[in-house]
C-alpha cells in the first residue's frame, strides 16, 4: 500500500523530512519549518500518486555523471520521486547568532544495511554543493530505521534562504526558485544500489497553514 501512495521503493520508505530554523527566546525554543513531510499512514482507499515523465525535469538536475538521467537509467524506477514543495518563508525569527538551521529526515527499510545519503543542490541544473551522510540501521518495531537528526544546513543554503526572504515580492522568490532544485539520493553504501531518489522543486507558500507539498512518481513511458 505504501509503494504507490508514499515516497517508498521496494526497500526503503521516507518517514519524515523537515528543513527548519530554531532559536531560543526567553528559555523557550521556537522552531520554524521551511518545508515538512510528516508521517503518514495511507490505506488502500487513498489515491495513488500521480506521475511525471522524468524527461521533463532531467535538465533541472545535474546532467553530468551521477545526475538524474544516469541514475534513472540505472534504476530501479520504483525508487524515483519528485516532491513539489511550497516552502514557508514567513518566519519572523531574527537572523544571526543563536539561530540553528537544520535538516532532519527518517527512513525505514527491510534490511540491516548502511545507507549513504547524498543531497545535491543545483542552480540552473548545475550542482553547486553536495553533502554526503552515512547512517546505520536501528531495529525498531520489527523494521530497520535510519535517522538523520538535526543535520546542520550548509552556508550556501543559509545564505540562499536569507537572500530569498529579503526579496520584496513572492513572484520574485518564485522566479529564483524556478532555477533552484535539490536531488537527494539514498543508496546502499556497500552495493551502491539506489534505494530512494527524491527530486525536490520549490515555490513559496501563499497558505496560512505553512509549508505544503505534492508527491509524484517519476516515470518514463
Amino acid at each position: 500500500v505504501w509503494q504507490d501512495r508514499t515516497i517508498a521503493s521496494a526497500k526503503l520508505r521516507l518517514l519524515e523530512y523537515s528543513a527548519f530554523l530554531e532559536t531560543q527566546r526567553d528559555r523557550e525554543t521556537y522552531k520554524h519549518l521551511f518545508v515538512h513531510i510528516g508521517p503518514s499512514n495511507p490505506g488502500y482507499n487513498d489515491p495513488v500518486l500521480e506521475s511525471i515523465d522524468v524527461r521533463q525535469i532531467y535538465d533541472k538536475f545535474s546532467e553530468k555523471k551521477g545526475g538524474l538521467k544516469e541514475l534513472y537509467e540505472k534504476g530501479p524506477h520504483n525508487a524515483f520521486f519528485l516532491v513539489k514543495f511550497w516552502a514557508d518563508l514567513s518566519s519572523d525569527i531574527e537572523e544571526g547568532s543563536g539561530v540553528f538551521y537544520g535538516v532532519s529526515s527518517q527512513y525505514s527499510g527491510t534490511e540491516n544495511i548502511t545507507i549513504s545519503v547524498s543531497t545535491k543542490v543545483c542552480s540552473f541544473g548545475k550542482q553547486v554543493v553536495e553533502k554526503v551522510e552515512t547512517e546505520y540501521a536501528h531495529m525498531e518495531g520489527g523494521k530497520y530505521v535510519f535517522r538523520i537528526h538535526r543535520s546542520p544546513m550548509c552556508e550556501y543554503m543559509i545564505n540562499f534562504i536569507h537572500k530569498l526572504k529579503h526579496l520584496p515580492e513572492k513572484y520574485m522568490m518564485n522566479s529564483v526558485l524556478e532555477n533552484f532544485t535539490i536531488l537527494q539520493v539514498v543508496s546502499n553504501r556497500e552495493t551502491q544500489e539506489t534505494l530512494l531518489c527524491i527530486a525536490f522543486v520549490f515555490e513559496v507558500s501563499t497558505s496560512e497553514h505553512g509549508a505544503q507539498y505534492h508527491v509524484y512518481r517519476l516515470v518514463n513511458d
Partner: peptide, 24 residues
C-alpha cells in the same frame, strides 16, 4: 554561465503541480 531552460510552465506537468494544497 547559465543555460537558458524551458520554463516549468511550458513543460508537460500535471495540473496539480501548480495547485498549492490547502492543508497537508
Amino acid at each position: 554561465c547559465a543555460v537558458e531552460q524551458v520554463p516549468m510552465r511550458k513543460r508537460q506537468l500535471p495540473a496539480s503541480f501548480w495547485e498549492e494544497p490547502k492543508l497537508t
